[in-house]
Design a binder for these strands. Structure first.
Ligand SMILES: Nc1ncnc2c1ncn2[C@@H]1O[C@H](COP(=O)(O)OP(=O)(O)OP(=O)(O)O)[C@@H](O)[C@H]1O
Length: 719
DNA sequence: TAGTGTTGTTTACGC
DNA sequence: AACAACACTA
């Protein structure tokens, strides 16, 4: 295929160039992994600007993560040094937040609304459920997923109420209604609301809708296969008669069905955007043929595919390697040893090596092993920085500065550290606030007038109110975010709680310091954003945003996080039945086998040069779970021979396995000493019937907690 | 009210 | 195994 220099020396093949240069209308680039879709999107953006076809500020580009947006911005800047800064870019959610901010005067909310993450959402739901007197019947997470599903289908609370049939649905609909009311009272949106409320706004207000549909001449969307109904409708709404929409994606890489993404969006693009030209890219520039063949063979087991051709001009390369290990810790040890070997023998930077897994919990073994082997690593996404307790607390205070109605934030920190306010005091305060009709900070300021509050509690709440309202004054007169952070930290004595000398306190202090720096950086990068802009920015961060590509640290992340990235070497860990494909505990089959298969496909196609799949015979996961090699291994290996399978080199015995016998005296961390009445093998574990001196003997399964034998009976006839 | 101990529940993927 | 809600005591 003839390669031509495209924009700024970046080479493009013929169909890529066609997609970059096409300006005749809507465009869909439907193409397989590694075929250069993202490159096309960046070049196309640059091309639109460079040729003067579109003014940069009339371009909107929506990507899956902020990192991807930043990367695109960088690429465009390298091609067209002028204009890249004036292109509007971000995730769907951040673009929606931007719309809601700008249009605050047209809706019920204020410009500085809060954005609730799933923890805030659950905290709010807990309260809503309690207020409705339904605690015990519903958990906050059940309610949150039900509500989220409604929002994904664009079903509002009224409609949900009307269509509720079963008592369960009726209950959920009631919770949905109260939840929305509570969000509104707090002047807050959850993530789903950002999309649905923006959509309602542009759809229902002709004036606003018209304005946005005329705002952009070109709208570009990456990873279109993972957009949901609201996102697709929003795209339609943003598309006026003169707008050219360009979407790129791959139906085989649709992996967010569980949160409402609809692969139909990409398949129906030609109907939604009439006259759309479809470009297919068939050459994969990323992976060796071996890797690509294995991945293609795997995904060919899905039905109803949009059959795509994908080939690689790269020579065969090394075989995909399948490695069995004896246990999760051996899997980690083997993987890191192999990674070290490659790092040294090939001179690969650590950041070119990734370990991908299905669940965040799997990262632990790898972290432990990496620490032990002195290998630098970065874990992406698991316990996000902003999810740490001290940071969430500080953010709660800051949110109250920006949004004095934010009740979830106040409830989080009102008695932290304890200030003599109990359940009843809190209740009295919030009742007073609700009936007074003023915002929460104003109510704090006059807390000593509230009946039912102790003198001490009233006084300390007034102090809080004073600190918050002063900070709010500073913020609204233009103080940068970092100044407000410093002020709050100082005035509230925020660090007092962490004055202890333990390593944990030290870590927390460091985190607060880190947070200060982040605020300072944000102030430098966005001088006019202020505190509200900073807060909304951190709420909208995506988990892949903390991936540092140039860090020279081994990369640990979930398969989901790896979407869109590439590495020289990829290890996929835990390729086992039950884990990949994932089966929820208590269920017998994966919820969506084909989506699991696509997830594995995404993981495999991240590798440029080497791909390893590892599995172990059993692993501890809220109880043991025997999996055995995933069917995906056989499916990938099917079409051809060279998936190499290696026997575990380690000479098993993980640790000399305890053997239990009737008559043994054992110790259980919870029940204490007990006498084994009966012991039978259950796979690699034991099922023990033990008399701890309670009325009934206990039946236990080993593998959860250590149950050492403290005295052998040793009678020969046993077992 | 605050701190501690106990019991019960839950348990991916993430914007 | 980890955590949250709850119960009880100082
Ligand atoms: N015409 C080309 N010539 C050389 N390399 C290319 C060309 N097009 C793309 N590439 C390279 O191929 C790799 C994959 O490109 P890109 O990430 O754009 O693909 P993609 O289709 O977005 O992949 P995926 O869907 O798997 O995320 C990148 O390393 C890119 O630089």
């Amino acid at each position: 295929m003839p390669e031509r220099a495209g924009m700024g020396g970046v080479s493009l093949n013929e169909p890529q160039r066609e997609a970059v240069e096409y300006t005749g209308g809507h465009l869909l680039v439907l193409a397989g992994a590694g075929s250069g879709k993202t490159r096309v999107l960046a070049c196309r953006t640059a091309h639109l600007v460079a040729t003067g076809f579109v003014e940069p500020w009339r371009i909107l580009a929506m990507t899956f993560t902020n990192k991807a947006a930043a990367e695109m911005s960088r690429r465009v800047a390298s091609l067209v040094p002028a204009g890249s800064g004036r292109i509007r870019m971000g995730t769907f959610h951040s673009v929606c937040a931007w719309i809601l901010r700008r249009e605050a005067s047209r809706g019920w909310w204020a410009e500085d609304f809060s954005i609730y993450d799933s923890d805030d959402q659950k905290a709010l739901l807990r309260r809503v459920i309690r207020d409705l007197g339904e605690d015990g019947r519903v958990t906050p997470s059940q309610a949150s997923s039900w509500i989220s599903m409604c929002k994904n289908n664009l079903t509002g609370p009224e409609e949900a109420t009307d269509s509720a049939g079963t008592p369960w649905e009726k209950l959920m609909a009631r919770i949905y209604i109260s939840y929305q009311a509570a969000l509104r009272a707090s002047v807050a949106f959850d993530f789903d609301d950002l999309l649905t409320v923006s959509l309602d706004l542009v759809r229902q207000d002709i004036d606003i809708g018209g304005r946005y549909s005329r705002m952009f001449d070109a709208v570009l969307v990456d990873e279109y296969q993972d957009t949901n109904l609201a996102q697709r409708d929003l795209l339609l709404a943003l598309c006026g008669p003169d707008t050219q929409v360009c979407a790129v994606g791959d139906d085989d890489q649709s992996i967010y069905g569980w949160r409402g993404a609809r692969v139909e969006n990409i398949l129906r693009f030609p109907e939604d955007f009439p006259g759309a030209k479809i470009v297919r890219l068939e050459q994969n520039y990323r992976s060796t043929s071996s890797i690509l063949r294995a991945a293609s063979s795997l995904v060919s087991h899905n039905s109803g595919r949009h059959g795509k051709t994908l080939w690689s001009a790269r020579p065969g390369g090394d075989d995909v390697l399948v490695q069995a290990a004896g246990s999760a810790s051996e899997e980690a040890a083997w993987t890191l040893a192999e990674a070290t070997r490659l790092h040294e023998s090939r001179g690969l930077p650590w950041s070119e090596i990734a370990i991908l897994y299905r669940t965040n919990a799997q990262s632990r073994e790898f972290e432990t092993a990496a620490l032990g082997m002195n290998i630098p690593y970065q874990v992406i996404g698991s316990l996000r920085f902003y999810e740490r307790e001290e940071i969430k607390d500080l953010v709660a205070w800051l949110r109250l500065v920006a949004n004095p109605a934010d009740r979830v934030s106040l409830e989080r920190v009102i008695n932290k550290p304890p200030r003599g306010l109990g359940e009843r005091g809190k209740e009295a305060f919030f009742e007073y606030a609700a009936s007074s009709g003023r915002d929460l900070v104003a109510c704090l300021c006059s807390a000593s007038r509230i009946e039912g509050l102790s003198r001490k509690a009233g006084a300390s709440l007034e102090h809080l109110g004073g600190v918050l309202s002063e900070a709010a004054r500073a913020s609204s007169s233009g103080s940068p975010a970092s100044e407000i952070v410093d002020r709050i930290v100082a005035d509230l004595g925020f660090l007092e709680r962490f004055r202890g000398a333990g390593p944990e306190e030290e870590a927390r202090l460091e985190n607060v310091e880190e947070f200060r720096k982040t605020a300072l950086e944000h102030d430098t990068a966005h001088p006019s954003a202020g505190l509200p802009g900073f807060l909304q920015g951190i709420s909208l961060l995506t988990s892949s945003d903390d991936f540092e590509q140039g860090a020279d640290r081994l990369v640990l992340m979930t398969l989901h996080c790896a979407k869109g990235l590439e590495f020289s070497v990829v290890f996929i860990a835990g390729v086992e039945e039950g884990l990949l494909p994932f089966v929820r505990p208590g269920e017998t089959a994966p919820a969506d086998l084909e989506e699991e298969r696509r997830l594995m496909y995404v993981g495999m196609t991240r590798a440029r040069d080497l791909l390893y799949l590892t599995h172990v015979p059993w692993r501890q996961r809220h109880g043991t779970r025997a999996g055995g090699p995933s069917r995906f291994i056989a499916e990938a290996a099917e079409a051809f021979a060279p998936v190499r399978s290696e026997e575990s080199p380690s000479v098993e015995p993980v640790a000399p396995r305890t053997v239990y016998r009737r008559g043994n005296l054992v110790h259980h961390p919870r029940y204490g000493r007990g006498l084994v009445l009966h012991a039978v093998r259950r796979g690699p574990e034991w099922q023990l019937t033990v008399d701890f001196g309670f009325d009934e003997p206990k039946v236990l399964l080993t593998g959860y907690v250590p149950i050492p034998v403290i005295r052998e009976k040793g009678s020969p006839g046993d077992q």
